[in-house]
Design a protein around this nucleic acid. Sequence first.
DNA 1: ATAATGGGTGTATTTTTTACACTTATTACT
DNA 2: AGTAATAAGTGTAAAAAATACACCCATTAT
Lengths: 259, 259
Amino acid sequence: MRRDLDELIKGKSVALRFSEDNLPDEQAQYLIPLEDFFQFGLSVDCIVFGFDGQDLKVLLIKRGVAPYKSYWALPGDLVYPHEDLDAAAQRVLENLTGISEVFMQQIKSFGKVDRHPLGRVLTVAYNALIRVENYEPRAAFWADNVRWHTLSELGELAFDHHEILAKGVEKLKARVRNQPLGFELLPVNFTLNQLQKLYEAVLGQTLDKRNFRKKILGMNFLVKLDAKQTKDTRRPAQLYTFDRLRYDELTHRGFNFEL
Amino acid sequence: MRRDLDELIKGKSVALRFSEDNLPDEQAQYLIPLEDFFQFGLSVDCIVFGFDGQDLKVLLIKRGVAPYKSYWALPGDLVYPHEDLDAAAQRVLENLTGISEVFMQQIKSFGKVDRHPLGRVLTVAYNALIRVENYEPRAAFWADNVRWHTLSELGELAFDHHEILAKGVEKLKARVRNQPLGFELLPVNFTLNQLQKLYEAVLGQTLDKRNFRKKILGMNFLVKLDAKQTKDTRRPAQLYTFDRLRYDELTHRGFNFEL
DNA sequence: ATAATGGGTGTATTTTTTACACTTATTACT
DNA sequence: AGTAATAAGTGTAAAAAATACACCCATTAT
């Protein structure tokens, strides 16, 4: 196919004038050989993290189409030609899983020549953090199935998604050391033990309960609620919520949240 | 031009078989509409940092071609269709400035629809750190001029390069807090005062001399040399060099280099 | 009533960070 | 040859942060 396209655009150049933009006149014309230019496919892949109270999970879809049909893969697809990158990430995730309006951050781009069997496709990976309670992932479009996976129980993934996922996890770990986590992954109201479990899951190490509380509470971005947890627990646990304003203020000052 | 290309590939799809790859047989065929696929241009932009002993500098080229002819810009150009991304960054930098074999890290991709006046071009930005002494940048290809610029003295840049540069500086600052800097930016042998000046330039704050030395020396990746600095200074300064092995060992253990 | 379970609390010790001022080796000048 | 000027170099005490550590509490299930 690469060759088909090459054939199609070979030798063709386009001379352009841009009347509408603000370039000086003599610069507004530019001759460009098509074959140098529009040679690339562009996709986005979303690494969707969730927390079930115990383990850090990642959302994968089972591909219903070739290539890599019936392999588990990160939710991802081609970007539309007239769509911004960040918007594409949101759209693709919604199309494939039904999850919308999600906190997302660009992680890295992957551009090996042969990473996609159909041609030269660059993919931009995004980390997404979601509250599992808020979303019921449902397979759509060409996804056969959608499911949360524990990081330690992954089989072979489609394309180079294993490498991409590893990078996403690495970035998440780096992030948790510099800014508070939980806004996005925990329920709006949560207990300190839930928060600690989350940190332990992400960092992959246990933390001292008293020291953790001292530190977190000392950062002053948690608000103690009147309510307590009423669930099946034994002693009811104090509920907290994040003080977004206070947090933004702190991050703006370059505050360090390292545990 | 967008329209010209649209015209060219409109309605065309390609059915493919991949005999050479390792996909199961029934997945090896895939029908793909061309207009969804090869719609994107891909470029790399290099943010080249250097240190002159006083200020942090960035290497810019003066564009000799439209668009943005005679604007200062980050060295960057289109990626070849059969070229890996990281390789492209090295090649582009060498083509435009003569600088080769450089330490580079991918920073971020920029993909706004309108960021390039000629069409949809995604760019992947790289941070490069170089020893100014080792390279004599010379303009080549379509570069009219190449020059080191101080960060505080920048005019308007081509494309969205101002945004890209800002991101690169931000990442450099974040990096200097987690791993030692200087391997790439300082001469092989250097004095502690040079190293301190570098840290101060990157972090944008002054540091206490005694505390800085205590900290840096305590990390044990500096080797005291027999030589002293013979230059025009007053009292001759002790020269040091980096112990690369020791440093790699530390980074591998997740050591924290924060000042 | 009681056993079981996860929730909650404080202090002493060690380590790290910070603040701070004078002496030394050289060059340039007279 | 003496002296002024300049950047290099050095240690300690006080404050802050990190760590280690063990028991009581409020509820549910039996």
